[in-house]
Amino acid sequence: MMNAPVGGAKHQLLPSCSILALLAALALPMQAQAGGTRAGSTISNTASASFDTGAGTTTIDSNQVDLLVDELLDVTVDSSNPADVPTTPGATGQVLTFSVTNNGNGVENFVLSTIANAGGDNYDPVVTQIYIDNGDGVFDAGTDTLYTPGANDPELDPDESVTVFVVATTPGAVVDGNRGIVSLVAAAVTGTGAPGTSFAGQGEGGGDAVVGSTGADGTDAGAFIVSAATVTLVKSAVVTNPLGTADPIPGATITYTIVATVAGSGSVSGLAITDNIPADTSYVPGSITLGGSGLSDAVDADAGDYNGTRINVALGTVAGGQTRTVTFQTIIE
């Protein structure tokens, strides 16, 4: 004849608010970190029973069960670039940023590698180096550490992250709008495999190392987007003469119009339009215009100048989708 165990009300003893708050604060250090109970630690469980068989209260302990906590091998890789990173054809030193996190419960080294030819994009970036960040999160080849597989595989504590830079060259043959994907792979040095795969005796603290849900390797992709621009120039001429006709007779004025059109998602910088004054014509002083506004012939603050043989208009940086119109005049001698 057994009695079901009940959580009897007589055992309820709710302490006052202030005492409970203090105790809750004291209990906080018992919380394990996100990576889990540290590999190599022991979980011990013992229960006790108290009872009265007529001779007062007796308390006994149960046997103790000890469980060794194995090392769980888990790692994640995350791209730190919120969007595709702009690049240009033939550019070197193009950087993708990743974060590698040890989600396991032991200290572990991770081998880094990249995959650039997995498809799903327009071209394969050429990975030239991998760098380990010095902690400031900003790529600097002078202060960050060049990574060599097997030589300086980053060692991470449980829950620790490290920033990794993948440096690549963009092939010269790519065109505007092309996308190139590079994936960073981080794999536990102890081993990888299906979740649950065990490496006997290789765990931190003497236990086994067991592959966790991530397979002990992580990967994430970052991408470059080619942002290039092309320039087309169209030149036209209109002749006017004192006779009111369009005949190119001596004394007639030729008005040249040069339209520069920039196309593509990128922009061109340092764009300048230069045109030599044709033979047997003479330049009309002060006739250069840019976008309908006159420019002086002198080399000065405005964009245009005439040096005796050619006109020059410096357009600077022009974004794709924009045009610039330059005109000047000559007189037929």
Binding site: P5, H11, M30, A32, T37, S41, I43, S44, N45, T46, A47, S48, A49, S50, F51, D52, T53, G54, T57, V69
Partner: peptide
């Protein structure tokens, strides 16, 4: 649990402190 004695065990209470890692 088992009462192997000859007397009933009254005020029977079993307590298990939870291991910190559990």
């Amino acid at each position: 649990y088992r009462n192997a004695g000859a007397q009933p065990a009254d005020k029977f209470v079993i307590t298990n402190p939870l291991p910190a890692a559990v």
